[in-house]
Simulated scan of single mutants.
Amino acid sequence: MAVDLVTLQELCALSQRFKPAGRTLMLGRHEWRPNPRFKRGFRTTWRKAGLEGSYLETVQDDGFCETLMASLGFGAMESLDFSDYEGATILHDLNHPVGEALEGQFDFIYDGGTLEHVFNVPVALQSVFRMLKPGGRFVSCNGMNGWMGHGIYQFNPELVWSFWKRMCGCKVHVCRAIETSPTEQGEYRLDFPDPAITGRRLRFRGINFPTRRVYLYYEVERLPESALGDRMLQSDYEVKWSSHNNAGEIRDVKAKEAEDGRD
């Protein structure tokens, strides 16, 4: 997938909050190609973020986005892919766990549309967690709605809160829907709350949710105390089950998982 104007806006905002100090990685190798339609939006977004340089200075001859990412302050990004047909620097099939050589190596990992093409998403997400350093951040921008037939999956905000926050103990900085093509009414962004706070699933009644393509965009941080658990429960069920007769058993399992993660 390619970086477009709406994802550029999110990356520009992130660049003002977070600067990785070490190695950085993208899943797949994403494009950033010259596009006359981008120039005006680029200038507005770039200047608003206080960044220097012109649009053409962020474009590289092969059409990929490493120069753009470096201009944003995200370092010399490496790329991980199944094949080297697009020039990836690390070859690995994300359907399988990464090896120890990649664990804890990266301060920043960016997925601009790769995980939706991976069948074994749980294994891929666990590998992303393992590759992050404590304090490192993972940013994902994959299809949520309107992408039928594009990849194997479309993603749900429930995955962000249940996997990253509760199963891994990471901090979720952003979890939102972004429409890929702004309309005359402006840009559509909708931030999703944690369903476990209310104990109810997300509802969209009364919300004019876009019918066009929408991304699920999120940013998560691996904390020093974060640990990969082996059980993920959907938020509303977890809240309901916590008051049932096996609640103590569930709490004991979670406490044991947390203790094992600290060892």
Results as ranks from 00 to 15, higher is better:
A2D: 13
L5A: 01
L8S: 00
L11F: 10
L11P: 10
C12L: 02
A13E: 08
L14W: 06
S15R: 06
F18C: 15
P20F: 04
R23P: 09
T24Y: 02
M26H: 10
G28W: 06
H30N: 10
W32T: 03
R33N: 07
K39A: 01
R43V: 10
R43P: 08
R47D: 04
K48R: 12
G53I: 04
E57P: 07
E57H: 08
E57G: 13
V59W: 09
Q60Y: 00
E66C: 07
T67W: 12
L68Q: 06
L68R: 05
L68D: 09
G73R: 13
F74D: 04
A76M: 14
M77I: 15
M77F: 13
S79K: 09
S83R: 13
Y85V: 13
G87N: 07
A88E: 04
A88F: 01
T89N: 05
I90A: 06
L91Y: 00
D93H: 11
E100M: 12
A101E: 15
A101H: 12
L102S: 06
D107S: 00
F108Q: 14
F108N: 15
I109D: 01
E116N: 12
F119N: 03
V121H: 07
L125R: 01
L125T: 05
Q126R: 06
S127N: 04
F129I: 09
R130L: 14
S140Q: 15
S140M: 15
G146K: 02
W147N: 02
Y153C: 05
F155Y: 06
V160P: 09
V160A: 11
S162V: 02
F163H: 12
W164K: 01
W164L: 10
M167H: 02
C175N: 15
R176A: 14
R176D: 07
A177L: 06
S181V: 11
Q185A: 13
G186W: 09
E187F: 01
R189H: 07
L190C: 08
D191C: 12
P193Q: 12
P193D: 13
A196T: 11
I197E: 09
T198W: 01
T198E: 12
T198G: 13
G199Q: 08
R200L: 14
R201E: 05
F204N: 00
F204C: 03
F204D: 09
R205Y: 06
R205A: 15
I207A: 03
F209I: 12
P210K: 00
R212F: 06
R213Y: 05
R213S: 03
L216G: 04
E219S: 02
V220F: 11
P224E: 11
G229N: 06
D230C: 11
M232V: 14
D236E: 15
K240H: 10
W241S: 12
H244L: 15
N246A: 11
G248P: 03
G248E: 11
E249P: 05
A255V: 00
A255G: 05
G261Y: 02
R262I: 13
D263T: 11
